[in-house]
């Protein structure tokens, strides 16, 4: 029992490694594997050829059959190790396969065709990254359009959110006016009302405004986030009023006080809200799914879901497009991770 107590409360090491430390590192190692392995597996799989994806049990690394160019043949041919009747093994390319018989050709001597049983040949495989998984869907499907839509939605929605939320937070934290409390309480009370509860009427409003099948219909409705107003207001309350008063004495207009004094001082809170907003918007699915029904307007998430829902799932493309979808947010995280984790830990509390 002493061990458990030690484990639960120790906050500072004393330089020696005791059993609880070993337990800790074991837990963290297992956790790291569990958290990263699925993503790593996705990335590795996305570089495999369709044939390699069908193999069971799957290979760890993206192997692909070696292809060779043989004189007299237009296409590159797959290379095999062939067991010859005399027991020797030769490397030959396969011209075609008929039933259980394969017609093989020696790359060094392309004139002569040798027929062998398909059981006597084995693929020559090498590690090769199947970049075509990434390139082909970008050319053949609308993925670049989806990507552009997602970027447009994420960037413009985040900018609108930052501006209108900070303006409202400024008014609610730095002015005394009739209705301020009421407005704040009403906004707060909807903190827990998700869009999934009001899908139908919001859809009606969107349709009424004419934003059905329009990116504006995705961008605008969620812009007035209660979370953002609350977070920014609490932060702005800590900015001393004297600063604002002295700026006003110097002749600054209210708008100038807002953009030149309050906004820069609220930068940390704005950054946290920006990160939240980018995350929400980039990953948003249900609302874009309802608003957008024309495929040239799909965001990445909707496009990806539609793509994988097709009858014949083309896994090699789906996996590559999934990697492309998670890449931007992963890069942002890799650069800003310390900032994001501490920022959310300190403000997520409120």
């Amino acid at each position: 029992m002493f061990g458990i107590g030690e484990f639960l409360t120790r906050t500072r090491g004393r330089g020696r490694l005791d059993p609880t430390d070993i337990l800790t590192y074991l837990y963290l190692t297992l956790g790291t594997i569990l958290m990263f392995l699925p993503v790593a597996w996705l990335v590795l799989s996305s570089f495999k050829t369709p044939a390699a994806l069908l193999r069971f049990p799957p290979d760890l690394l993206p192997y692909a059959q070696r292809m060779v160019k043989v004189e007299g043949y237009d296409q590159t041919l797959p290379l095999f190790n062939v067991r010859m009747p005399d027991g020797s093994t030769r490397q030959m390319a396969q011209v075609r396969r008929v039933g259980i018989e394969a017609q093989m050709v020696d790359p060094a001597n392309p004139g002569e065709i040798i027929r062998v049983n398909i059981a006597d040949r084995e693929e020559v495989r090498e590690i090769r990254l199947a970049w075509e998984n990434y390139i082909e869907p970008l050319q053949r499907f609308n993925f670049l359009v989806y990507l552009r839509n997602s970027v447009v939605v994420t960037v413009s929605a985040t900018l609108i959110t930052l501006i209108i939320n900070s303006m409202a937070a400024f008014a609610l934290s730095k002015y005394q006016f009739r209705g301020a409390d009421l407005i704040f309480v009403v906004i707060l009370s909807t903190l827990m009302i998700p869009i999934s509860v009001i899908l139908v009427p919001v859809f009606l409003v969107i349709t009424g405004v004419g934003w059905n099948n329009n990116l504006l219909g995705v961008i605008v409705p969620g812009a007035a986030t209660p979370t953002g107003v609350f977070l920014l207001r609490q932060y702005m309350l800590t900015i001393p009023d004297e600063l604002l008063a002295s700026a006003r004495i110097d002749g600054a207009s209210e708008w100038r006080v807002y953009w030149q004094i309050v906004m820069p001082l609220a930068a940390p809170a704005l950054a946290v809200l920006a990160i939240f907003s980018v995350m929400w918007r980039w990953n948003d699915f249900l609302w874009p799914l309802i608003v957008l029904s024309r495929s040239e307007l799909f965001t990445l998430q909707v496009g990806l879901a539609a793509f994988q829902g097709e009858l014949n799932v083309q896994w090699h493309y789906v996996l590559a497009m999934t990697v492309l979808t998670l890449l931007p947010i992963t890069l942002v995280f890799a650069i800003l991770q310390r900032f994001i984790t501490t920022g959310i830990a300190t403000t997520g509390m409120k």
Binding site: I163, M167, A171
Partner: peptide, 21 residues
Amino acid sequence: MAYFFVLPNLLIFGIFVLFPM
């Protein structure tokens, strides 16, 4: 001016959250 500052947020909030509720 306080009303001016809350207005944009309140408009979007009212049209797309409060009214639909």
